[in-house]
Design a protein around this nucleic acid. Structure first.
Lengths: 240, 240
DNA sequence: GCGATCCTTCGGCGGCCGCCGAAGGATCGC
DNA sequence: GCGATCCTTCGGCGGCCGCCGAAGGATCGC
């Protein structure tokens, strides 16, 4: 820190960045990027630290405004505070250097394969599936990238046909492009991305794989994607 | 750091955040957010640290990919690496807590007044002027916020009339909304925002105030804004 | 050529911060 | 009620990291 700092004005960027500058806190945030609420002990185990250490980190993240918490009996549930926070973490993740080591064990390799195939990213879909849906929507003229990403009038109609209500106008943009870590191509985020993701769960198109953020396409989902987007099976599970 | 970290996969978010988690490095980045190249000693004086300290920080920021450098004689010039980096710093700045103390000295108060009025933010315009231009463009139907921010066909025509060439299609979005720190409302960023800002300099609508990132509207500029956007003087220097 | 300026390397100091385990409070399941 | 589980507080350890000044190389202006 700077003892005789002449620049007390302006935003305290370092204070915010410091919250994410620790390996354990960063791994908490990446875990929470699945959009769900986790308990303190779940996060501690995930990151491989003692429960007392996790408590301290969560206190920092909550009081710093990045997480919100909810006490339920003996459990402390935390989640990302809002879409803005998720967006910040996504942006950092998309620009951060990759870690060198690939996963070594077979289970770990399977886990990261499943994640790369399809997962939630905060409140929308990501991985090969998320990217494939986004690209199919573009090809069908539901999304337009000419002047920034927009939903076309065909897109509005398409959503209505699926029974997805147009999300109410808030500060959050309806459609937003989010760079996919594994695919290195953009997938659909924003309020419409969230509504679409919710629909795929509600309509039984996808289900969670165990307790992870990875998801699997159901048979219903395969049929629905073929009917509504012309997406065939091969597209969803590309051979790499 | 976590000694037996089970999560070596994925982006190293903490490493990137750590670059911005120091008060001195953060103040360097905020200074560089004016889009210009600074020498090492200029940044050291700005942040109030010894030259040797600045050297160390710049080495970290450059090798971390946030800054690019250029040697010219005895000078070391650094600037933000790319628009993506500027966007990351903007996002952090817009979410970071404000610092408590208002500026105490009269010159400092004048400086921050000038910055709030009109300044560059990386390669586009910000402050009351940037926001006023953005809002005037919206009122005239040159920008549309319905489905995310877009440039309308009227907007394209308007740019052409000003002699601003449509920026070539790259990964960078043509128009983007950037939350203004001082106004707490969005101003225009992206490739079009940059082209417009360049035009205002080239056409002599604005000039730098001294060596700061603050800019002043010229008489030519006032006339141009009135002619092309219907912006009257009052709008540009609102009484707060 | 000769000071002045810009920048760098190095050594050393000091403080912050992440970690754990022990102890204990609160809640749960049976 | 009574272990088990979740979470927290506390003390203490260790290491990292930001800071400076001194010394010196490289370049500049005159």
């Amino acid at each position: 820190m700077n003892s005789h700092d002449a620049h007390v004005e302006g935003p305290d960027l370092a204070a915010l960045a410091a919250l994410l500058a620790d390996g354990t806190r960063a791994s908490f945030c990446l875990a929470l990027l699945d959009g769900r609420a986790w308990t303190a002990i779940e996060l501690a185990r995930y990151a491989g630290v003692a429960a007392s250490t996790a408590t301290g980190h969560l206190n920092l993240l909550v009081s710093g405004g990045l997480l919100t918490q909810e006490r339920q009996g003996r459990h402390r549930y935390v989640r990302l505070a809002d879409p803005d926070t998720a967006e910040l973490i996504e942006k950092l993740a998309s620009m951060a250097p990759r870690r060198a080591d690939p996963p070594r064990s077979l289970p770990a390799a399977n886990r990261s394969r499943a994640l790369a195939r399809a997962r939630t990213c905060y409140d929308h879909l990501a991985g090969a599936l998320g990217v494939a849906i986004t690209e199919a929507m573009t090809e069908r003229g539901l999304l337009d990238w000419e002047q920034g990403l927009t939903l076309t009038s065909d897109g509005t109609t398409w959503l209505a046909e699926l029974g997805i209500a147009q999300p109410p106008a808030t500060r959050r943009p309806p459609v937003r492009s989010c760079l996919d870590w594994t695919e290195r191509r953009p997938h659909l985020a924003g309020a419409v991305g969230a509504a679409l993701c919710r629909h795929t769960f509600d309509a039984g198109w996808i289900t969670r794989i165990g307790t992870s953020r990875a998801v699997a396409l159901t048979d219903t989902g395969k049929r629905a994607l073929k009917d509504h987007l012309g997406l065939v099976d091969e597209t969803q599970t590309p051979v790499r």
